[in-house]
Amino acid sequence: MNRRISADALRLAIPALSLTVLLAAVFWLQPRAMSYVGLNLLFNLAVPIALATIAQMLIMSVNDLDLSMGTFVSFVACVTATFLRDAPLVGVLILAGAVAVYSVLGVVIYLRNLPSIVVTLGMSFVWAGLAVLLLPSPGGQAPDWARALMTVKPPLVPMAIVASIAIAIVAHLVVMRSSLGVLIRGVGGNQRSVERAGWSVVATRAAAYGLAGIFAVLAGIALVGLTTSADANIALRYTLLSIAGVILGGGEFIGGRVSPVGAVIGALTLTLAGSFLSFLRISPDWQIGAQGAILIVVLALRLLLRRVEIREKGR
């Protein structure tokens, strides 16, 4: 029992450590960032990414992968900048419908035994198409409340940090502390034993996908709150960023092993890595490679750690 906790703590230690090292490097390169305004500018675009990462994490905790995350967040952004502002009731209904579609997807993937990658890849075209239908040319306007929420200036600690901590706490409570969270991770770890224990796998998967849909909707709203208006292609990068964030934060592709706090830290690390490379004045041709290198270094550290873990267990 004792060892299990230490292993989990270690799992979280690596992402936390990489974030700290990066942050120190950024502060050293650009002392201006070491301020209320600076921290907010560094991290405010990480808030929607963190929400999308939590959504992806929920899908990954039932051993699936969502390749439509980027287009779905873009679609939500378009709904937010149009319907949610002009006709809030219709907007809420559309978003609720979208979350319901996510739940249904989770069920269909399970019942028909379909590969989630294929289904969500297909859905990504559906979401992209709907987004283009809603906003054929970039435009729309963020609802005032979303804009106010994302530009609020709380005392002492900037919005981006407060929001990241709040997201981490809420996701931690839902995934690690609630019985639903245990079930979701159980389905990812060992579906049959959950089934034999008398739980409904269908309902659990529907709930996991539905929750992911809710977090993705929040990501879209947060993004529009930051950008003030939408574009049908606004969040295409989020698909890969969210997957990388989960893995960077100590999650695994299979086995229901995920860490919500780690996922948020992973999203922050990815955002910071971009700024770090930009402050270093690395040429854009090398930037993608450098971003990849940072990912590989962190993952290599984890692999090393796992070896230590296994050796400890063997003893």
């Binding site: 650009q30 201006r32 960032a33 600076g38 500018l41 560094l42 405010n44 675009l45 993004l223 930051l226 950008t227 574009d231 292609n233 606004i234 969040a235 295409l236 990068r237 989020y238 955002t271 971009g274 700024s275 930009s278 402050f279 004045r281 854009p284 930037q287 993608i288 971003q291």
Partner: peptide, 25 residues
């Protein structure tokens, strides 16, 4: 007069780039 190009042609990345420029003074 420093030129910066984003690694990928994505709006979110360019938004982050602009925010970095604010920090760079």
């Amino acid at each position: 007069a420093d030129p910066f190009t984003t690694a990928e042609n994505q709006a979110t990345e360019q938004a982050a780039q602009i925010q970095n420029m604010i920090l760079q003074g």
